[in-house]
Structure formats: structure tokens, C-alpha cells
Write a protein that binds this DNA or RNA. Structure first.
Length: 340
DNA sequence: AAGATCAGCAACCGCCAATAC
DNA sequence: TGTATTGGCGGTTGCTGATCT
């Protein structure tokens, strides 16, 4: 790879292919608080776009691309940060199955998440599992494992969390165990996830070639996903990530104000300020249902082989964060043997 | 306690399509 | 119409903190 500089935080460029005086001064590597403030302030006053000239006008010794990336992936007020939730994991798995590595497209359906974040999630978590299982992440074997084992397991955990919340709220009774039974049945273009929660209530959702439909939707009661959210349909002219969510939560000027006050209050002690914390609340109001239903017919599975066996996950005893424990790897092994 | 290894993620790169001139 | 610039995307790198030995 061509090396034009080093990635040190306070380095200037050690250039091997210098083309102009300006390039000699270009900074690279982690952004400083001052740079972030300069970028935030400039965008607050002038808006975004025309990134090269923006970088110059704002007095930033960065490329336009670098400024754009910093803004979109970090400084933008509506960037949602923190752990990828179970619902988001499920959605990522499903959408990746549908579109592959179309990260920006997938990101459109996870409001506040950036394509970079989703890509990192996939590479660090999902590909890790494939590696552990010694199979290619794009292999049928692994895709089937995701579809028949991992995704149902996620559904189970989602409903368990929802049931636990409900139970605690209702009577303060013991929290839910992961004893629910999940079955998946496929009939032509419809896949049905069916399970009983801890209150012995039957829950299910169906995934058609069209939209996902929910019956008795305990799954939707997760407190992380309530309220409403509007998204930009994929066929919209403003479907790009920068436009889809650019200004819908809070004006940039507010971000700048809050950010300034936070910095002056000494709450930023590193090079990675987190202004979005002020807007996290807005994103905690997102609707999972809104995320997974769309005019374009989202959340439909690829056609499956007929006579797909029902899979009972009741004896898959994973209650930890990781799915691929020894038991499940054995299960995966058996599953693979039966489907090769 | 110290070095090695791993995991997560911010940031960069090259390529390409869209837009401006 | 051709060229330059800009923006968007997917792939990759390397820094940093956590964990392991």
C-alpha cells in the first residue's frame, strides 16, 4: 500500500508522494478535540457538503474525505453508539443474508448505526464465529447455521428479555429463564418463528416475501424499542446514509452548544468526545417494528428447501452472551452433518 | 509484574459513480 | 462531450485497552 504518512495522533506527514504544499501539512490519525470542535462549529454555521472546501475553510488540515468520515461516523448528532442490541443483531444477520456486504444499505435499516459500525460488528463477531467453526462465512453451511440456529436463538433471547421485563414489572417474580421453545417452519415464501414465552403465551412472527408480521408481539415490548421512527426508503433519492438521518433528531447548533458546555465542564478527557450521548434518548425511542418492515419488502428470507425440519431449541442451554459454546458447536456439527 | 495475544473500532485507502464545469 | 471534482462504498490497517500466560 502506498504510504503517505503515519497514523500517529500528533504526527505531521512524512510523505513519499507529495503533490502539493497543502498535502505536506495534512494531518492523519485520530482526531483531537480541537479538530472535532472546529468541524462541528463549521457545520453548525455552514452546513455539510463540499468536504474539501469545508476542510480548508474550517482551518482543518485534513482531507475532505477525512472530515466527512469523522462527521458521519462519529460527530453527527444522531449517531447511535453502544452495544449492538439483540434485535439489531437479528436484523443484521437477516439483511446480510439478503444483501451481503452492502453495509450502507443495511445501515439504512438500523437507524443511527453507521455502515462502519455494522461492518465492524460483522467482521469481529460473525466472522469470528465462522472462523471458530472452521467454515467460510459465505458458505451454505454457515448461512444455514445462522438461519436455523443463531437467528432463532436470538429470537429466543429477545423474547426472554421481554418476558423478564414483563414479569418483573408485573409481580416482581423471578426473572425469566431461557427455557422457551422456538420452532421455525417454512412454507413456500413464509417462515414462521414460533415460541412460548415464560408466561406460556404463544408468540410468533412470520416472515413473508413481503413484510414481517407479528402475532401477540411480546417481542416488541422490549423497552429498547418503543415509540416511532421514520426512515428513508431505499428507493428514495436521499437514500444515502448521510441524508437519511442527517438532521432528523436535533439541530447541529444544539449539538455544538451541548458539546461545548460538556467540554468546558471537563467531561471530555480524551480525544474521542461523545456528543451523541446527549441524543441517545432520542434513539432509545426507535421502533424495532419500523426497522424491520419496509415498503420494499424487507425481512424476507431466501427460499429454503422444502420439508425443512422443525428445530427445537429448548435444550440449547446457552444463557450467556455467546451463542457458540461447546454445546452449540456440537449441535452445529450435528446440524451440518444432516444438511451436507 | 510484564510481555504476548486478542478484540473492538476509528480511520484510512482505492475504486467507482455522480455531478459540476 | 470530456475532464475534474466530489461523494459514497467496501476493504483494510493499525491503535488501544482488555485479557491471558
Amino acid at each position: 500500500m502506498e504510504v503517505k504518512g503515519i497514523r500517529a495522533s500528533n504526527s505531521t506527514t512524512t510523505t513519499t508522494t507529495i503533490q502539493s504544499e497543502d498535502e505536506m501539512d495534512l494531518r492523519r490519525g485520530p482526531w483531537t478535540v480541537d479538530e472535532d470542535l472546529a468541524l462541528i462549529n463549521y457545520i453548525a454555521n455552514h452546513g455539510e457538503g463540499r468536504w474539501n472546501s469545508l476542510a480548508r475553510s474550517a482551518g482543518l488540515k485534513r482531507t475532505g474525505k477525512s472530515c466527512r468520515l469523522r462527521w458521519l461516523n462519529y460527530l453527527r448528532p444522531d449517531v447511535r453508539r453502544g452495544n449492538i442490541t439483540l434485535e439489531e443483531q437479528l436484523l443484521i444477520l437477516e439483511l446480510h443474508g439478503r444483501w451481503g456486504n452492502r453495509w450502507s444499505k443495511i445501515a439504512q435499516y438500523l437507524p443511527g448505526r453507521t455502515d462502519n459500525e455494522i461492518k465492524n460488528y460483522w467482521r469481529t463477531r460473525v466472522q469470528k464465529h465462522a472462523k471458530q467453526l472452521k467454515c467460510d462465512v459465505n458458505s451454505k453451511q454457515f448461512k444455514d447455521a445462522m438461519r436455523y440456529l443463531w437467528m432463532p436463538r436470538l429470537v429466543e433471547r429477545i423474547q426472554a428479555a421481554a418476558a423478564a421485563t414483563t414479569t418483573v414489572a408485573a409481580a416482581g417474580s423471578p426473572t425469566a429463564s431461557a427455557s422457551a421453545t422456538t420452532t421455525i417452519t417454512t412454507n413456500n415464501n413464509t417462515t414462521t418463528y414460533n415460541y412460548y414465552d415464560n408466561n406460556n403465551l404463544n408468540n410468533s412472527f412470520e416472515v413473508h416475501s413481503g413484510n414481517m408480521m407479528v402475532r401477540n408481539p411480546t417481542i416488541m415490548n422490549n423497552n429498547n424499542f418503543c415509540g416511532s421512527h421514520s426512515y428513508t426508503p431505499e428507493n428514495s433519492s436521499t437514500g444515502a446514509s448521510s441524508d437519511s438521518f442527517g438532521t432528523q433528531v436535533s439541530p447541529v447548533s444544539d449539538l455544538t452548544q451541548d458539546y461545548y458546555s460538556n467540554v468546558t465542564a471537563g467531561n471530555n478527557n480524551n480525544n474521542n468526545p461523545n456528543p451523541d450521548q446527549y441524543y441517545q434518548q432520542a434513539h432509545d425511542q426507535l421502533s424495532f417494528l419500523d426497522c424491520i418492515t419496509s415498503p420494499s419488502g424487507l425481512f424476507d428470507f431466501q427460499p429454503m428447501e422444502p420439508n425443512t425440519p422443525w428445530i427445537n431449541l429448548s435444550n440449547v442451554g446457552d444463557t450467556s452472551n455467546g451463542f457458540w459454546n461447546v454445546e452449540n458447536m456440537l449441535l452445529f456439527q450435528q446440524f451440518s452433518d444432516n444438511n451436507m
